[in-house]
Amino acid sequence: MEAAKAHIIIKGVGAISPLGFDSASTATAYTSGIPAFKTILHQGTPTPVAALSAEAEEHLQDLLLANPVYKQLDRSVLMAVYAARQAAVQAGWLNEPPPTDDDLAVNIGSSRGATGLFEEHFEAFQQENLSSSASPTTTLGNLSSWVAHAVNAGGGQISHSITCSTALMAVANGVAWLKSGMAKRFLAGGTEAPLTDFTIAQMKAVGIYSRLTDHPYPCQPYAAEKHNTFTLGEGAAVFALEQVFNPAPGTLVVEGVGLGFEKLVSKTGISAEGINFQKSMRQAIAQLSEHDRQVDLVITHTPGTRAGDKAELAAIRAVFGDNLPLITTNKWLIGHTLGASGALSLQYALHVLQYQQFTAIPYPHHLPQQESTSIKRIMVNAAGFGGNAASVIVSVVK
């Protein structure tokens, strides 16, 4: 008799982004296909960004008011706490007394961390008025420790940054910890609050920031026109993971995780062939059953940069050959949320699996024309400065 197979299931999802503050509001936004961008003045120059909606901002402020201690925290930490509590509630973990064996581990990551608060404290430092809270509230470890407090987690707590692959690598960590037995429950995700003067200026200095301030789609992955359209957004998404045997039909499962790396060939670590993507995608696919490795849709990283978008598409073609899956992205709707981007793309994947629909990219693009099909398995990609990449494959139990 064949032994029962263990599955890593997604028991809960929490997110806050320019598209919404819960699964219902986010689903409505994805169905409408209306981008969440606005134009701000950054150092006197009109600049497109994707900020939280007014409703989402109101919910975040409610969280802030609910606990006076949160007033000292960076926006990235607040969004992580909001998303993590939402995921834990959905999983049923906050409706139970805290377990005595501290079996809930947390891994929340961010590319930039507490950049807004750091900028505030640095300005105070220049004025010789630095607060004693500057150091403890700007450490990257702040992310997982405050989330752990908010969800009664007593297990391992990991905060990390591997640039824009951060969130998917947190999911990979969750899978590894659960399979190893080091945790029985795991909260994994990413958060980013990069809409600050210094962070926006850094992206502009790289020379990739979108100048389409008057365009309905300032961020245009795979655009036919040859220009860079990178646009910053903010948000957080967290997933409640467990390992179970024989999950019920309809259960969301993580089937594979892959990590890739390539030697630096540029400031951003992008090769024309997308070697890092090829490695991460192949590693994730290798974890599927040898007799069933069909991927129906790839949600790509594609931040709207000419070199990055082209490299990822080349990598997908190299990996899948003639059996090319459908390809899409959500960055034309919410921009690039850096360390949170993989998590928000994964949230999008779960939306597509549930509703069997995704909004077609509305501007001229280089994506191959493909016939729509039933979407049973989705791969999500992410990559970051330094040559790293991560891929996660999700599906629904039949």
Rank of each mutant, 00 (worst) to 15 (best):
G335S: 05
M379C: 09
H7Y: 12
V380H: 02
L232H: 06
F239V: 09
L52T: 03
S165G: 10
D101S: 12
T231R: 04
Y222A: 05
P68K: 15
F277C: 02
Q157T: 00
I34R: 09
T229G: 05
S32A: 15
A150L: 03
A29Y: 02
I200L: 06
F385I: 07
V394F: 01
A360V: 10
A3W: 07
A236M: 03
I10W: 03
S180L: 01
T26Q: 00
A360R: 06
T359H: 14
G141L: 10
F261G: 09
G113D: 03
G235M: 12
Y30A: 03
V265M: 02
Q347G: 14
S391G: 11
D309S: 06
N323T: 13
V253I: 14
D296A: 11
D214L: 05
Y363C: 12
S341P: 05
Y217E: 02
I34M: 01
T213D: 12
D309H: 05
G44C: 04
E312D: 10
V49Y: 00
A3R: 14
E119N: 08
T268I: 11
I327R: 01
A167F: 08
S17L: 11
R112L: 15
A91F: 09
T305E: 04
H121Y: 15
V175A: 04
L259V: 03
M379P: 09
A124V: 09
C219M: 13
F230Y: 13
L264G: 10
A390E: 07
M182D: 12
S395M: 04
D102V: 10
A311Y: 02
H149I: 15
L78I: 11
A91M: 08
A240N: 08
E225H: 13
T199G: 05
S391W: 03
E312W: 11
G256H: 05
P368I: 04
T373M: 11
N67C: 04
E290C: 07
R317H: 15
G12S: 06
Q370L: 15
T47Q: 10
A88C: 14
C164G: 13
M1V: 12
I158L: 06
G386A: 00
L130C: 10
Q43S: 14
L338G: 13
V238I: 15
W146M: 08
I200V: 09
S144L: 07
G116N: 13
